[in-house]
Design a protein around this nucleic acid. Structure first.
Length: 299
DNA sequence: ACACGCGCCTGATCGC
DNA sequence: TGCGATCAGGCGCGTG
């Protein structure tokens, strides 16, 4: 599940591998991956003859610059790019292939088929002509203009659990399930705490921990939980450093208490029940009230 | 405006 | 051993 650190590592590997290459032709085998333009034949035809000039990233989106277009690519859960020689055997679930003029090809694989590509003219008006999710992104968490005060302003009127608010890409761009759990643990904040209860001081700690965990994860090459690899096919190393994600039942690295797994905002959520104190108010269940679909399940 | 549930999709794992 | 059910989850969308 590529989040900001994984997408940044994909960006860096692609930048080394494909910048300067000229697209000879494009094969689209699974049209649902291409959202824009609707006509996938046009997607392929427009790209033929274009040169890749740079690879950028915004949140979890890759922005592949192919003048006069930007190819906006989102990997969602399991999307992968690999540069391969045309003679190399293809891996299964390869849905889009960019053939270059030099005998190599950039292959897009995606087992779950959730990933998306939008081909947008670079001069298209912002934000209306661009993918809504991209246009609505909050600040880049590692940019200098993202400050503790900015984070506080963005969360302090929200009643939803802090975890849900941090997963919302309009709050901050690029966080997903892994790094939200890690940042909240490092900040000592329980994921179920209403965002409106976070103090300025806590928001400042959270801001610092978001930046710290993202920087460390980028440096480690990202986290390979299930399937993540960068453009060279290399796994990341940060899964070894995760403090809570995927560690249910294992001892907290700080206090030794068993890490718990619960469900918050519909996501598997990992907490240390001692380092992250639960908000005081427990939800009261009225007798005969309808059972909530995502209510506290078995664990 | 905001909160929240569902559908999308496949493969690994669970439970009987 | 076999096989259906469940889980994994980012995001777009519909509903309240």
């Amino acid at each position: 599940m590529p989040e900001l650190p994984e997408v940044e590592n994909v960006r860096r590997s692609l930048a080394q591998m494909v910048v300067g290459k000229i697209i000879a032709s494009v094969e689209v085998r699974l049209p649902r991956i291409i959202r824009t333009p609707e006509d996938t034949q046009r997607f392929a035809a427009e790209l033929a003859g274009c040169t890749i000039t740079s690879i950028e990233r915004r949140g979890k989106y890759l922005l592949i610059q192919v003048p006069p277009y930007t190819l906006v690519s989102h990997l969602r859960m399991e999307g992968q790019y690999r540069l391969a020689d045309e003679t190399e055997p293809e891996q299964p679930h390869t849905h889009v292939v960019f053939h270059f003029t030099d005998g190599t090809a950039l292959r897009y694989r995606d087992v779950r088929q959730f990933g998306t590509m939008d081909l947008i003219p670079r001069e298209a008006p912002w934000p209306e002509a661009w993918p809504q999710g991209l246009a609505a992104l909050g600040p880049e968490p590692l940019d200098a203009d993202f400050t503790p005060a900015d984070l506080y302003q963005r969360i302090h009127r929200r009643s939803a659990p802090i975890k849900a608010v941090l997963l919302d890409q309009t709050t901050v761009a690029g966080l997903g399930n892994i790094y939200v759990d890690e940042a909240l643990f490092a900040a000592g904040i329980h994921p179920e705490r209403p965002a409106s209860q976070i103090t300025r001081k806590q928001a400042s700690v959270l801001h610092a921990q978001i930046q710290d965990v993202l920087r460390r994860a980028i440096d480690a090459g990202g986290s390979s939980i299930k399937t993540y690899v960068n453009g060279y096919g290399r796994h990341g190393g940060f899964q070894m450093e995760l403090a809570v994600y995927g560690r249910a039942g294992e001892p907290c690295r700080v206090c030794g208490t068993a890490i718990e797994k619960l469900r918050v905002a519909g996501r598997g959520t990992h907490v240390c029940p001692r380092c992250q104190t639960r908000p005081r108010q427990q939800r009261a269940v009225k007798p005969g009230a309808p059972v909530r679909h995502t209510g506290g399940g078995a664990s």
